[in-house]
Amino acid sequence: MKPKDIAIQPFLDSRHGLCPGCGSAIAMAHIQSIVSQPLPSGKIKKIRSMVIPASCWSIGSGFDGVSFVGTNLTNTPFIAGATVGEGIGIMSQRQGLAEKEITIVWAGDGASFDIGLGLLSGAAIRNADILYVINDNQTYGNTGAQESGATPEGAKTQTSPLGKEIAQKDILEIMMAHKIPYYASIVLSVTTLDDFYAKVRRAADQSGFRCLHLLSVCPPGWKCDAAKTPDLAELAVQTRAFPLVEVIDGRLCLTKPKREKPIEEFLKHQKRFDAIIDSPEALHKFQKQIDNNWNYLLRLEEITK
């Protein structure tokens, strides 16, 4: 089944409260549409609930008991998403509905890299039967773009006005260390559509702990043009700022971009990186880190073959 065969369902009500150009809003509509279609094995799964720890989606996905995303929503405190999802997943198993239902936890990078990391680790190592989506916009979006563990080094945020001084956490390696059955990083853009759809379908089809690391363009946080969202998503992949990987049972597979571009092509559209763009030295250092990480992933792909 190709992307063109999956009609985007009207999952996202126009009353939703996400920002213009929000990358995660389009991704939500696509992921829900993909999951609700017959999966590669022929299974059809009903979304039992989307579990939403504190994030933009807490206020954006509904009001007064009404869900704007077309499926059940369970809102939780910031720290608790993964384990609340696990509890719902266990009940699906006990009710004999594990093959017919899917619980999706839709958590931000703050909830996953930082405050909820402990509980995420617990749910992952217990192989909780959930699809855990890290909706990563590289910042605490709902509070107005503060530094998170996912913020790239050097990027400016409201709490790192001169640029982040510490490294970005490597969530791929954190999740790989948990030996989960499925992990993939995904980006929604024109040239990555096939990759996106294939990974979401595989993740939804399986059972156990599946993690999708979704890069979500965030115009207010990234200080970029809201009309550029799909282009920036694509550039993140083409510049290798956000490598597309898939890890199945510990074997890492890297999706190489067809056209590679230098990092400034991605950075120059975002004011949060203006200090890096303005400094040839900083830009060179940034590019070097990107290259190092890419080479590391190439070696990891080789080792885990």
């Binding site: 609930s49 608790a80 384990t83 509890g87 719902i88 266990i90 009940m91 699906s92 509980l119 190592i125």
Partner: peptide
């Protein structure tokens, strides 16, 4: 993995 997780699990189970 903690009492916090014990309670989060309970919220999930009871919600379902």
């Amino acid at each position: 993995d903690s009492e916090l997780a014990s309670m989060a699990l309970g919220i999930g189970v009871a919600t379902a």
